[in-house]
Nucleic acid binder design. Structure first.
Length: 880
RNA sequence: GGGCGCUUAGCUCAGUUGGCUAGAGCAUCUCGUUUACACCGAGAGGGUCGGGGGUUCGAAUCCCUCAGCGCCCACCA
């Protein structure tokens, strides 16, 4: 016997993974005639180590990839990592701060060098950990968002969009993070509640409220709703004098519907430079905008004595100044509002007007399916028309409502780590600026102009990850040939031709806007095809208490790298799949991981038992059903295999897992193996084991491959590259007969346990299948003997139509009477229900035929059962 | 303010287009040292599927409504 008593995952996992990799089991073959199946792995940020969330997506995608291989497909699961501009940038800046320096002191080149060192180190760690999860990715095609060919694609798309008028540069209000000194997109901003002081000040004839007195230096407009009757006497454009922070100012009345008359006094002053709503009001009315706060979060000279102060320092002092001037009306210390912070680094956002690059989402200049549409329209079209299906469907609604509110996408970032914008500027002596967008600046040297300088900004990380499904499939050699267009490079790239559009995108619902929508936007535009056909969205893994795992509660974080050595990777994978449904969050559970560690051991011992019976060297060609148990297990196997295939095709991972679990544990281990012990059918046991290993393999690749490698039934073949077994034929009647045996065994067990008796004989009247399986029944029900009689006495079995009695004296069986009676009543109720259903004409007329036939059959069976219950009850009642 | 989701056994959750007597894991109780497995086996208890109404032959499933919880988006002068 080769298999030790208990499965010890740590002893095999690393070797098994190395074996797969050495055998190139996961390498894709674009020239293969097989149907292609492709998934792009969402590239994890190279910021450190694998989280439980990574474990979840690696598991789900791995199940899909392995299952597709088992179905005879050529599979590409393309792995990669993301340069994660903002996140990595934040880490490096923190490191520099800790060293007592900053990015300005070290300069761009040193900063980038430091960053490269950091990501190179963390990438190796990440990739090792992805392998530890068992990810069957094609590592020969590993990509990185900053690879040459991917960067080339980024540049091409930017330039193409610019030339098509879909990218523009403009002064717009952006979410500025003074900490990281960059803007961030609307999606990267999160809000948190804060308690602050809400001041009401006198401003000319009006009272205005604010929580931010420090922004008020430039105020010269008051805005109110046009329908607000309290201020009907003031007309749009009226001016008035007001005493204010820097002395007397002349202010103008503006009427705008953005003002909520019910909030505060219904009047407000505006700060267009530092507030989104105010900016829009100012744009509508052509008002002046003035910067009050600089890009480091300090007040500008307009603040007079307060210039150079931070916001936090200046705020109370400015309020005090206004109070001195007698302009403070009231102060509410308990005011709660939300403030915007950058989700990376948590810096408080200070909106600023800056010159930035934007993707225009409303301009109709995108060719899609023969029409010229805007990005917004394409995004809507592909999901509405079914080019892309989102699972679960409810996220389609969320997707549409997001698009309805979509604003132009600001793609420039003021950080250094990332793809530098391919835009060039030069100035002449008069300060005139000329702009050029292209990979390299023009060669001309015009009289009186300085040299071309590249835009110092980089692109939003999502701009490059938006191209991920296809930029990773470009042939890097072709991308180097500057004479080729994007279309030509794609046409000449074998991987792109074979694997794009990808079959499915699997990712978390939290990045549907960041990533999924942007992939659709950029890919439809650049390639004329959708990036993927299906989108499967998984939920978050929360802590055991149902709350988010959070760095502020380190004990809440489940680290896969500590779970794996303790329970095994397969147990972790299955714990994450057990009972999940698309789009729903799940709670981490110690119970689940333990259950699956046990499940792996169960599988191990099933194999161990069968190995002990059939030996090391075995052919399954002669596998066929002999006993009724054999027929039954084959019928089950066929049913389960088909069910799992259907589930996996429909992305019902949890249900496929559930079928697998119960098939192995209940059907194979508890029934089939036990039943087979009377007369083991070696070839069939071997077939069942092989089938079970294959079905379990996508979920538990390590334990199944370990078993397969230990058995060596097929020389050096890999389970990972084997296809599902073809179903063997079976006889349905014989399979059903085993069901009868199960009934007899179950009821005997029940009675024996309930009455606390043992050493009992089962009598039966001439029933061939019992005669043939007497040994099995005796063994499984732990009976003394199974004996044929003319007419039996004792306790009559009621869950089978065969006539069987347990040899139990009537005194002992008195206790059983009660149970019998309850059973009788239950059965009568069932019959009443079924009869009611069948006596209803509209049911018989409307319900599907097979359902009605089924009901009739059930009724027949139930009546028969009740009849024998009645007989038995009467007999006991009179004789006992 | 707009939208989405959840509420099913003590706990955590499945339940595909409405159709077997509503399931699982964990927990609980009883029994068991049968040579694959105590990371085990056998058996049991436990739910009027959040409340109310409706559609239907039939509702955990569809519709309306109420309640509680969670999330997303917008706004927050």
């Amino acid at each position: 016997m080769n298999l030790p008593k208990a499965y010890d995952p740590g002893a095999y996992e690393a070797d098994i993974y190395a074996l797969w990799e050495r055998s190139e089991a996961f390498v894709a073959h674009p020239d293969s005639k097989k149907e292609h199946f492709s998934i792009s792995m969402p590239p994890p940020n190279e910021t450190g180590t694998l989280s439980i969330g990574h474990s979840l997506f690696l598991t789900l995608q791995d199940i899909m990839a392995r299952h597709a291989r088992q179905r005879g497909k050529d599979v590409l699961w393309l792995p990669g990592t993301d340069h994660a501009a903002m996140a990595v940038n934040a880490i490096i800046e923190k490191k520099l701060t800790d060293e007592g320096t900053n990015k300005h002191e070290v300069g761009r080149e040193v900063f980038l060098e430091r960053t490269r060192e950091f990501v190179a180190a963390s990438r190796g760690t990440m990739l090792g950990q992805m392998r530890a999860m068992g990810a069957s990715a094609d590592w020969s095609r590993l990509r990185y968002t900053l690879d040459e060919s991917l960067s080339w694609a980024v540049q091409e798309v930017f330039i193409k969009m610019y030339n098509d008028g879909l990218i523009y540069r403009g002064n717009r209000i952006v979410n500025w993070d003074p900490n990281l000194e960059t803007n961030v997109s609307d999606e990267e901003v999160e809000y948190k509640e804060e308690q602050a002081t809400f001041y009401t000040f006198q401003y000319g004839p009006f009272q205005i409220g604010t929580a931010r007195p420090e922004t008020k230096f430039g105020d010269k407009y008051v805005v109110m709703h046009p329908d607000d009757e309290r201020y009907a006497q003031y007309k749009h454009g009226d001016t008035f004098e007001a005493e204010w922070l820097n002395g007397k100012v002349t202010a103008t009345v503006i009427k705008d519907e953005a003002v909520d008359p019910a909030f505060g006094t219904g009047v407000m002053t505006i700060t267009p430079w530092h507030d989104h709503t105010d900016f829009e009001i100012a744009e509508r009315h052509g008002l002046e905008k003035q910067q009050i706060i600089d890009f480091h979060g300090k007040l500008l000279p307009i603040a007079g004595d307060f210039a150079g102060m931070s916001i936090a320092e200046a705020r109370p002092k400015i309020a005090a100044l206004l109070e001195e001037k007698g302009l403070l009306i009231s102060r509410d210390e308990k005011y709660v509002h939300s403030i915007a912070v950058n989700e990376r680094g948590k810096g408080v956002i200070e909106p600023q007007i800056r010159l930035q690059w934007f993707v225009d989402v409303n301009k109709q200049a995108v060719e899609w399916k023969g029409k010229t549409l805007s990005f917004k329209e394409v995004l809507q079209s592909v999901v509405r028309e079914g080019d892309i299906k989102i699972i679960p469907e409810r996220f389609e609604k969320i997707y549409f409502s997001w698009i309805d509110n979509l604003r132009d996408w600001c793609v420039s970032r003021q950080i250094w780590w990332g793809h530098r914008i391919p835009a060039w500027y030069r100035t002449d002596a008069d300060g005139q600026v000329e702009t050029f967008v292209g990979a390299v600046p023009p060669a001309d040297e015009a009289e009186g102009w300085r040299e071309w300088e590249q835009d110092p900004d980089t692109l939003d990380t999502w701009f490059s990850s938006a191209l991920w499904t296809w930029s990773t499939l470009i042939d890097p050699e072709l991308a180097r040939d500057a004479s080729l267009s994007l279309a030509e490079v794609l046409a000449g790239s074998p991987d792109y031709q074979a694997y794009h559009p990808t079959t499915v995108l699997e990712t978390g619902w939290d990045i549907i806007f960041f990533w999924v929508a942007r992939m659709i936007l950029s890919t439809t535009y650049a390639t004329g095809t959708v990036p993927f056909k299906d989108v499967y969205l998984h939920g978050m893994v929360r802590a055991e208490d149902g709350k988010k795992m959070s760095k502020s509660r380190p004990e809440s974080i489940i680290d896969p790298l500590t779970v794996i050595p303790q329970y095994g990777t397969d147990a972790l994978r299955m714990a994450l799949v057990m009972g999940v449904s698309p789009g729903n969050d799940q709670n981490w559970s110690t119970g689940k991981i333990e259950a699956n560690r046990n499940f792996c051991n169960k599988l191990w011992n099933v194999a161990r038992y069968i190995e002990g019976i059939v030996g090391d060297d075995f052919s399954r060609e002669k596998s066929e059903a002999v006993s009724v148990a054999d027929h039954w297990v084959l019928s089950k196997l066929q049913q389960i295999q088909q069910g799992m295939v259907n589930d996996l095709d429909a992305y019902r991972f949890g249900e496929a897992y559930d079928k697998l679990y119960h098939f192995i544990w209940d059907d194979v281990a508890d029934w089939y193996i036990e039943a087979s012990k009377a007369a083991p059918n070696k070839p069939l046991l071997a077939h069942v084991l092989e089938s079970v290993l294959l079905l379990a393999h996508p979920f538990a690749p390590f334990v199944t491959e370990t078993i397969w490698q230990t058995l060596k039934w097929e020389g050096d073949s890999l389970l990972a590259t084997k296809q599902l077994t073809k179903p063997l034929g079976f006889d349905a009647k014989q399979a059903a007969t085993f069901g009868e045996i199960q009934n007899i065994v179950s009821e005997s067990r029940f009675v024996l346990t309930a009455l606390k008796v043992s050493g009992i004989t089962l009598y039966y009247t001439a029933v061939p299948f019992i005669t043939e399986n007497a040994e099995t029944i005796k063994r499984m029900a732990r009976l003394q003997a199974v004996t044929e009689v003319e007419d039996g006495t004792g306790l009559f079995l009621t869950s089978t139509n065969a006539r069987c009695w347990l040899d139990i004296d009537q005194g002992t069986a008195q206790a059983y009477l009660k149970e019998l009676n309850a059973k009788r009543e239950r059965q009568a109720a069932v019959i009443a229900q079924l009869e009611g259903r069948l006596s209803n004409d509209s049911y018989v007329k409307n319900a599907p035929k097979d359902i009605v036939a089924q009901t009739r059959q059930q009724l027949g069976e139930a009546q028969e059962l009740l009849a024998s219950l009645e007989r038995e009850y009467d007999r006991f009642n009179t004789t006992a």
